[in-house]
């Protein structure tokens, strides 16, 4: 048996494309946010509402990752925002080469902000850098307040945590201790910004829009 030292990064192909994407976005001073959550937490609903309510203020484009259908891309198209659909054909996450191709199909020069809606999955997408400016993790209250503790990787890596569907807390339909979720997330990630919202009623969405506008402004500097 001969032992050979290799020492190679296994995901270097993905990292190479992620770096290209970083350069592509930096040269154009564009902000690109990668939205990650379990299936059904409300990513598409947050995006369509955000696009509608920021019309005239921020020009938003979307890269939609979906395992098979183009249902979400259709919902984005209805807002008239430019959208590029990626079918992962079974894969549970987007990868950097797919984003590289999608960026070339978006009218990037005419946009202020590009959202990537990743495939609904709280684990796999967090392992693949796409070249994004930041990750946004969405957790809806129906999923339980123990998720930051149980799926630490994505909470450790995200810039913003959106706690969605807070309208469900009012009727006492779900038990979700916001303070516990916040404390667990902050323990993993001191810098994470946590915004409770309802994409349905609009509650808290103003804070999210302020955050986005500030972020876009900073990315233009």
């Amino acid at each position: 048996m001969e032992k050979v030292d290799i020492g190679k990064r296994i995901l270097r192909e993905n990292e190479k494309y992620a770096f290209e994407n970083i350069m592509f976005l930096a040269e154009r001073k564009k902000l690109c946010l990668n939205m990650i959550s379990s299936p059904g937490s409300g990513k598409t609903t947050i995006l369509t509402r955000t696009i509608d309510e920021l019309k005239g203020k921020l020009r938003i484009g979307v890269i939609e990752g979906d395992i098979q259908t183009d249902l979400d891309a259709e919902r984005i198209r209805a807002t008239e925002a430019p959208v590029v659909q990626i079918n992962t054909e079974g894969a549970c996450h987007l990868s950097a080469p797919q984003i590289s191709a999608a960026l070339k199909r978006l009218p990037v020069e005419d946009l202020d902000l590009i959202f990537i809606e990743n495939v609904g999955n709280l684990v796999c997408p967090s392992a693949f850098e796409l070249g994004e400016s930041g990750k946004i993790v969405v957790l809806s209250v129906a999923e339980g307040d123990d998720k930051p503790a149980k799926y630490p990787a994505i909470f450790a890596k995200s810039k913003v945590l959106l706690i969605n569907k807070i309208d469900l807390l009012d009727g006492g339909h779900v038990d979700f201790d916001i303070e516990r979720a916040k404390a667990d997330a902050r323990r993993l990630n001191k810098a994470i910004e946590i915004l409770p919202i309802s994409a349905k009623t609009g509650e808290g969405m103003g804070n999210w829009y302020d955050r986005l506008e500030k972020w876009v402004k900073n990315s233009r500097l």
């Binding site: 048996m1 001969e2 050979v4 030292d5 290799i6 990064r9 296994i10 995901l11």
Partner: peptide, 9 residues
């Protein structure tokens, strides 16, 4: 990071 450290041939 994920690294392939060594191979035995």
């Amino acid at each position: 990071p994920l690294i392939l450290e060594e191979i035995d041939f």
